[in-house]
Amino acid sequence: MWKIKATNITQKFNNRLIFRDISFELNSGESLVITGPNGSGKTTLVRIICQLLKPTAGTVRFYHQDRPLAPEQLYPVIGLVGPYLQLYNSLTALENYKFFARIRGLPVDIRYFRQLMDRLGLKGRELDELRTYSSGMLQRVKYVMALIHQPVVLILDEPTSNLDEKGTEIVYEIMEEQKKEKILILATNEPGEIQFGEKQIRVA
C-alpha cells in the first residue's frame, strides 16, 4: 500500500504568493487532477510533489506500508511526463532507454523496450536520434522513458499536449491502467482528462 500525503503546501516566488495551504492524501488505486488557469501554479505544484522544487512551506511525504520514504528511495517510485522534462535529443531512443534503465538499476531488456515503443506507436524508430522526432513523437517517447520502471506514482503534466487522436487514446489507456492499482496525478485543464481524477484540486 502506497500513500502520498501533502500538508499545507505554500509556494511564493520572491514575494508573490502562487498558492497557499494545499493539502491532500492519495492512496494506491486513487487519482488526483490538478486544474487551474494558466500561470496559477499547476506545474509548480507538480514539481513540488516530485521533489524537484522545495515548497516555501509545507511538506509532501511518500509512504510505503505506512513507512515514510527518504528522498533517495523515491527514484524508482515516481514517473513524470511534462513539457519541461526533456530527453537527450542527440541520442537515439534506444540509447536513451539504455541510459535510463541502467541508471535506475534495471536490466536492459530490449524486448520490453520494443514492446513499449510499439505500444506508443513508435515501432521502427528505436535507432533514430530524438532530434529527428516530431513534437508528438517526442511526447510519446517521454511516456516510454517514464514507464520503463513501472512507477507506482505516475505524474502527468499536460498529458496529451502535442498528441494526435491516436496518441491521446494510448495515453488514456495508460492513465486508466495506472489508476486501477497505483497512483495517478494529472495537471490539466482538458475536460476529457479531468474525468480521470477521483480527487480534484483547483489552484488559483
Binding site: R47, C50, L52, Y75, I78, L80, Y84, L85, Q86, L87, Y88, F100, I103, R104
Partner: peptide
Amino acid sequence: QTADTLRLV
C-alpha cells in the same frame, strides 16, 4: 531541460 530528468533518476 534534461537536468530535471536527471534529478528524478
